[in-house]
Structures are given as C-alpha cells and as structure tokens.
Design a protein around this nucleic acid. Structure first.
Lengths: 219, 219
DNA sequence: CGCGTAACGCACCGTATAGTTACTTACACA
DNA sequence: TGTGTAAGTAACTATACGGTGCGTTACGCG
C-alpha cells in the first residue's frame, strides 16, 4: 500500500502502474454508473471501460460488484459529513446558522447529484451494504449532537422554540431538499414546470428556508 | 374487451379462461416485483410465475417489460389521486382540512409502500414512462387547484397566511412524508432508531403536521 | 542488476434474462 | 353444434451479464 509514494506526484515520466490512481478511477466511474443506472442497472463492464481499467482490477480491489458499491457509498457519506463539518455553525447567530445548514444541504445535492441516487439504491436493498458500518453511525451521531447544541443555543438566546428534536429536524431538512431533487423528473411532468430551471431552484430554496425557520424560530 | 361479462362473476363453475383476471394478476405481481427490486432488478419470469400466468401472456397484454411498468405506474398514480379526491376537504375548517391532507398522505404511504419505490424507479429513468401521459397531468392539475382553493379559503377565514404557493406546499407535504419512508433503511442505520416502530411513526406524523401547520397557519 | 511481488490484461465460462416461435385449447356467437 | 378468435402453454434463442483462470509486465527492494 505505501509503495511508490516518491514517484507518484514528482516524476515527469508518465506512470504506467499506479494502484492508488487506478482505484480512484474505478471508484469515480462506479459512482457515475451506479448513480445513473442504480445498483442492478449498473454494468461492471461499463465501469471498467470508463475507468480505463481492466475488469479484473475491479474485482481485485473490491471483491465484487456489491463490494464496489459499498465502498462508493461509504465514501459519499463520509464526504457529505466532512463538508458539513466545515460549516462554522457555532460562531453564527442561531437563525443564520440554521439557514446556513439548510442552504448547505440544498447546494450539496445540486453539486453532488449522485449522492441522492446512490442512497436510493441503498434503500432499495434495505441498506444491506452499510448496515454494519460503525463508521457511519459514529459520524452521524456527531452530527446530530451538533444540531442539538445549535438548538439548545437558540433556545438559550430566546430565538428558537423549546422542545424540538434534533433528529426530527435533521430528517425534515433533508426531506424538503432531497425529495425535490430525487423526484424532479416525475415532478416536472406532473406539475408541468421545469424543476431545474434557475428561477424554480431559487423559489424552492427560499420556500425551504422559510419552512424550517417557521418550524424552529419563535414567531 | 367487453367479452364474457356475463359469466365472469355469476357462474359457480371455475373459469379456465379470464383475460381480465389474468391481466389483473399480472399487474399485481408486477407491482410487487417492480417495487421490491426496481425496474432493472425485477424479473419478468418471477412476475409471470407469481401471477400464475405464462410469460407469453405478459408480453401479449403489455408488449414489453417497460410497457408493463408503465401500466403499473399509471394505475398507482390514478389510485392515489382517486383516494385523495374522496377526502372531504371542502367541508372541514381550513386547518382541519390541512391536517387531514397531511395525515392522508402519511397513511397512504404506509398502506401502499410500493408506490414510493415505483416512483423512485421512474425517476431513475428520468420519467421515461410517464413523460407523455396527459392523463397524469390532468389529474394533477385538478389536485393542485383543489389545494389552492383550500389555501384561498383559509386566507379568507383569516387562519392561513397569504401568498403561499399551492405547488410548493404540495411538494413539501409529500417531501416530509415520502422521505421518511423511502429512506427508512439508511435512516434506521444512521440514526440508530427503528423508523417503523409504532412510537417512531407516531412521533414523526405529529412532527410533520406541526411543520405544515406552522408553515401555513397564522401564529 | 536480478528477482519477487503486485499491477495489469485477455479471453473465457456458466448462467440468467428479455423476448419469441409455433402450437393447443376454451368459448362466445352464429 | 360447429367454428373463428382470443386465451393460454412450453420450449427455445441470442445475448449480455457477473465473475475468473491464467498468463504477462512493470518496478521497488535487496
């Protein structure tokens, strides 16, 4: 694993062999393919081709199609939580912090459309891949506690209503943002509007922020 | 199509041939299989077997796997809208009507878990099956107008805030209910609670009703 | 410099899958 | 009661799929 670190980024001569880079190319290609076609719809041949890797390598590094999916999904969860962690919620006024959180979630889904589809696939198979991932549980706990302390601070400062459950709030914030994107295709047909038009996006994020503020804030 | 109406339900002698009944068995089996495994994951052989029909019949009636999926999905959309129509929103006080609507959506998803998964599949393929279904557009328009007039009435009676968009409200109501169910598996892992336990369900529907009332109602 | 190991590639396998061909059988209507 | 037509069946096909056996090549280390 720690091999060839020295040449990896310093040499000008093109690397013919680079395990780490190959793994990453496979993971990126897999993310795209799984997100586009779902777990069952994704084709390992397509992933290998798109990654400019051999299918044999895919099985060498990730054991199976499901192993590959698990790795992709775990990385995506780690990524969103990591970016969330970087939000400076603690040093903002409670209401601003809340709005920041809602807007972050929204913008994350826009910037990472694959995330939603991957999570949908995982739920279709009843979370079989992440069920036993203690890592995920740990980082999620941390996140809920963080929101709880934001809620507490807001109550102390007399701007938030008392008694709001942090988990329920988290779920609600995710809901109103996630649903809009995951169902944008049927939504566009049913409501006869382009869900991804800039004005539509603007209108929706405003509505979502209002929904959450009215739920949490006093008056 | 109108053949054998007379014998279909009156004769005591068991029917060996019954096109309508076979179609229905296929549709029911398909709903189950598509909901459980997604569009790509579903197997036509499994559907035929479960429907106690021959695979050839499936292709005879529905042309293709996609044709079958389209039919299943359209029926599901018609069904939820039809049940919604039966809600007596017009004769209830605005706030009660709103709560009734939220609770209906929630309970519909509980009673019809397939609906959510089917819609997810349709969005994975970018609404390819329903894109050109005028029927769906028509019934959805009708529904939005109904909610708009509920909002208008609430404003007139001075219990609802002014200026709320009926479509945004519809999306939000669907969101907070839909998301909870579609992501119940990853949710149960991440938040370490059983999303489908009776107490959890009770807590969530209360929270959802509060979310919507705070969004729409004055004070 | 040579050698062992890890990266990589080709060609293949068994199976499962959507869809079809060619046929038989029940029954509504004349 | 005879018959045309639609309901129903079984066996089949071509292919695409996830996965593997086995050989080759690069390269870090001693």
């Amino acid at each position: 694993m720690p091999l060839e670190k020295s040449r990896a980024s310093s040499s000008t001569k093109k690397r013919v062999r680079d395990a780490e880079a190959t793994k990453l190319r496979i993971l990126e290609a897999a993310k795209k393919e799984f997100a586009r076609n779902g777990l069952e719809g994704a084709r390992v041949d397509t992933i290998a081709l798109d990654a400019k890797a051999n299918k044999r390598m895919l099985y060498h590094y990730f054991k199976s199609k499901d192993g590959l999916f698990r790795t992709v999904l775990e990385r995506e969860y780690l990524n969103i939580r990591e970016e969330e962690t970087r939000l400076d919620l603690e040093n903002l006024p409670p209401r601003t912090a809340l709005e920041t959180l809602v807007r972050f979630t929204w913008e994350y889904y826009i910037a990472n459309p694959e995330f939603i589809t991957l999570v949908n696939s995982e739920n279709l198979c009843q979370a079989a891949h992440i069920r036993n991932s203690p890592t995920l549980k740990t980082i999620s706990q941390k996140f809920v506690r963080r929101i709880q302390s934001l809620l507490d601070r807001g109550v102390r400062e007399n701007v938030f209503r008392d008694g709001i459950d942090a988990t329920q709030l988290n779920i609600t914030i995710a809901s109103i943002n996630y649903y809009y994107f995951t169902n944008r295709f049927t939504g566009s047909v049913i409501f006869e509007r382009n869900f991804t038009a800039p004005e539509a996006l603007e209108e929706r994020i405003s509505f979502n922020i209002e929904t959450i503020c009215r739920l949490v804030c006093k008056n």
